[in-house]
Simulated scan of single mutants.
Amino acid sequence: MKQDELLAGHLQELRRGTVVLACLATLGRPRYGYALLETLEKAGFSVDGNTLYPLLRRLEKQGLLTSEWNTEEARPRKFYQVSPDGEALLEQLTREWHVLDGAIRALGRRETDE
């Protein structure tokens, strides 16, 4: 397997593991799916629509997001926003993310010290 393919596969797994955190962090204000895709993309977090839309439905079913249809424009859009339970989970996941980041950094420092 080529190095580029290997890297791409591992990056995809890493992103897959963090997409919930990225969505919760982004949905502090209401956004519809395509706008969320664009926001994530601009931040350097590329997510496929076939991944995002089922995830949004799952997070809503879990009570982590709320949604509301906006039918005032020509094209109806479903807007998602993080719920109070989603905010609480976001705080917990963010703390864990920082712990993991610190652990990885510490492991890297230990390697250079040995």
Rank of each mutant, 00 (worst) to 15 (best):
M1H: 09
Q3A: 13
Q3M: 13
E5F: 01
L6Q: 06
L7W: 04
A8D: 02
G9W: 03
H10F: 07
L11M: 12
R16V: 02
T18L: 14
V20A: 09
A22G: 03
T26R: 01
P30G: 11
Y32V: 06
G33W: 08
A35E: 11
L37M: 14
L37A: 11
E38S: 13
L40S: 01
E41R: 14
A43K: 15
F45S: 02
T51C: 05
T51M: 00
L52W: 00
L52G: 05
L56P: 04
R57K: 15
R58E: 13
L59A: 00
Q62K: 09
L64W: 07
E68F: 05
W69S: 12
W69Y: 13
W69G: 02
N70Y: 08
N70K: 07
T71Y: 05
E73T: 15
A74R: 15
P76Y: 12
P76Q: 11
P76V: 10
P76E: 10
S83I: 02
P84L: 02
A88E: 06
A88V: 05
L89T: 11
L89H: 09
R95S: 09
W97F: 13
W97V: 08
H98M: 14
V99E: 13
L100I: 06
D101Y: 13
G102T: 04
G102W: 03
I104A: 13
I104G: 08
R105I: 10
R105S: 07
R105W: 06
A106P: 10
G108T: 05
R109T: 10
R110S: 09
R110I: 05
E114F: 09
